[in-house]
Amino acid sequence: QEELVKAFKALLKEEKFSSQGEIVAALQEQGFDNINQSKVSRMLTKFGAVRTRNAKMEMVYCLPAELGV
């Protein structure tokens, strides 16, 4: 569980995922086979993730800066 949270936060820091499906796929690539869209959705809510525009003006998920991840 701890490893999943770390990987999840690291992915969001990249600010390149525009959908929950993309986050699920990226986590599965890292070996988290039991991850699915509903789990990702709950984690996004739990950590207060928001959708914002990145440098390329794409809408992407990211974590609020005050979490200091």
Rank of each mutant, 00 (worst) to 15 (best):
Q1F: 12
E2F: 12
L4K: 01
L4D: 01
K6T: 11
A7M: 06
K9P: 00
A10G: 09
A10S: 11
K13S: 10
E14W: 07
E14Q: 14
E15M: 12
K16H: 06
K16A: 09
F17A: 04
F17E: 01
F17K: 03
S19G: 06
S19C: 04
G21C: 04
G21Q: 14
G21R: 14
E22L: 06
E22I: 03
I23Y: 02
V24K: 05
V24E: 05
A25H: 10
L27Y: 00
L27I: 02
Q28K: 14
Q28Y: 08
F32E: 00
D33F: 13
D33H: 13
D33L: 14
N34A: 09
N34E: 11
I35L: 07
Q37K: 15
Q37L: 13
S38E: 14
S38F: 13
S38P: 09
K39D: 15
K39N: 09
V40F: 02
V40I: 08
V40Y: 01
S41M: 11
S41Y: 09
S41R: 14
R42S: 12
R42M: 14
M43N: 00
L44V: 04
L44D: 01
T45I: 15
K46Q: 15
F47R: 01
F47A: 06
F47Y: 12
F47N: 03
F47P: 01
G48V: 03
G48H: 08
G48P: 01
A49R: 03
A49I: 05
V50I: 13
V50H: 07
R51V: 09
R51G: 03
R53A: 10
R53M: 15
R53F: 11
R53W: 08
A55P: 06
A55G: 09
A55E: 12
K56R: 10
K56F: 10
K56D: 11
M57A: 10
E58Q: 13
E58Y: 04
E58C: 02
Y61P: 02
Y61T: 02
C62R: 07
C62N: 05
P64S: 05
E66K: 07
L67G: 13
L67E: 14
L67R: 10
L67D: 15
G68V: 10
V69A: 13
V69Y: 04
